[in-house]
């Protein structure tokens, strides 16, 4: 049910990995060069009809299938060859399929502005490939006064997030690559519109603590067709470090301990004829979780690279 976390995290992932991986040059560059920029627009659709209440997988006729559409414009800017700035500003729409037993209105609006600085610390030839070590420092903050305490329709968790991520990639010169990343997501508090809530006890405040989380990522991929097509299989793991479980047949709330494992595939294509243009598509599926929807999602997008 605490679905927005997935999405917010997905943005971070996308921002960190997709927006800056390009195939415009024959090199193995993961970073945008200085004064280069890559803009992207991604549409994502996700849905779930089962969710984990604590660790128990269940359905709920009140919400039936919860759908979510995300429009994510973003840009990656090469400040230096080894330092990129990434900006994203998603617009999110949620609703249940009809008929359902709850008759709840969905929600929509701009979610969180996310900013990230990505630095390449190391990139060296090692044996038959290149080893790259990168780090990302990210910050995201709600752009609008959306209500986080409106699960499962809320469009985000409504709190600031500070993230630090380490990325290690080894890419064979022949095109195969593997990448692992780990991040710590430090979340702040979100303000509800009620000043009492239960979180294993009474809280007499509108402020809710959004749990911090670990984020793990593993990717295996290949560049093909003369570096114009990239195919990836990926894994995403989220582990909240605190929080309460959704109570029986009750709505989720931002204080919940959200964890999940998700696997997916993605493709990026950069036709040689259309200089600077690229297209991407991905699909992912949660396979295990706690206090979150067992969601599937697919996304499609366009990227455009240009000099500034």
């Amino acid at each position: 049910m605490k679905f927005q976390n997935t999405i917010a995290l997905y943005f971070v992932i996308i921002l960190s990995f997709m927006g800056v991986s390009k195939a415009q040059t024959p090199s193995d560059a993961i970073m945008m060069h200085q004064r280069e920029s890559c803009a992207a627009l991604i549409y994502e659709h996700s849905w779930f009809d089962h969710y984990w209440e604590g660790t128990k997988l269940r359905t709920n006729g009140t919400i039936e299938t919860v759908k979510r559409n995300t429009f994510l414009p973003m840009i990656a800017i090469g400040i230096f060859d080894q330092l990129n700035l990434l900006i994203g500003a998603p617009y999110v729409q949620t609703a249940s399929t009809e008929p359902n037993g709850g008759y709840f209105n969905g929600a929509k609006g701009f979610q969180d502005l996310s900013l990230a600085l990505k630095g390449e610390i190391l990139n060296l030839q090692l044996g038959m490939g290149k080893l790259a070590l990168l780090a990302t420092a990210g910050f995201s903050t709600p752009m609008t006064n959306y209500l986080s305490d409106y699960q499962p329709y809320s469009i985000g968790f409504g709190a600031n997030e500070y993230s630090l991520r380490g990325i290690l990639q080894y890419k064979l010169d022949m095109g195969f690559y593997g990448r692992v990343a780990a991040a710590y997501l430090l979340r702040g508090q979100t303000e509800a519109e009620r000043d009492y809530y239960y979180n294993n006890g009474s809280y007499y405040t509108a402020w809710m603590d959004v749990p911090n989380a670990w984020n793990y990522n593993a990717v295996a991929g290949i560049w093909m067709l003369g570096n114009s097509l990239k195919l990836e299989a990926n894994y995403l793991g989220i582990k909240s470090t605190s929080g309460d479980d959704i109570r029986p047949y009750n709505a989720a709330q931002p204080t919940n301990k959200v964890s999940f494992d998700q696997v997916g595939i993605s493709a990026q294509y950069y036709p040689k004829a259309a200089k600077g243009l690229g297209a991407l598509a991905y699909f992912s599926q949660k396979i295990n979780g706690r206090n979150t929807g067992k969601s599937s999602q697919f996304g499609v997008g366009l990227t455009y690279q240009f000099k500034i």
Binding site: Q189, G201, S202, W207, D209
Partner: peptide
Amino acid sequence: FITSCEKDMPT
């Protein structure tokens, strides 16, 4: 940021 923005959470 984090230390300055956290609100008290009275129980």
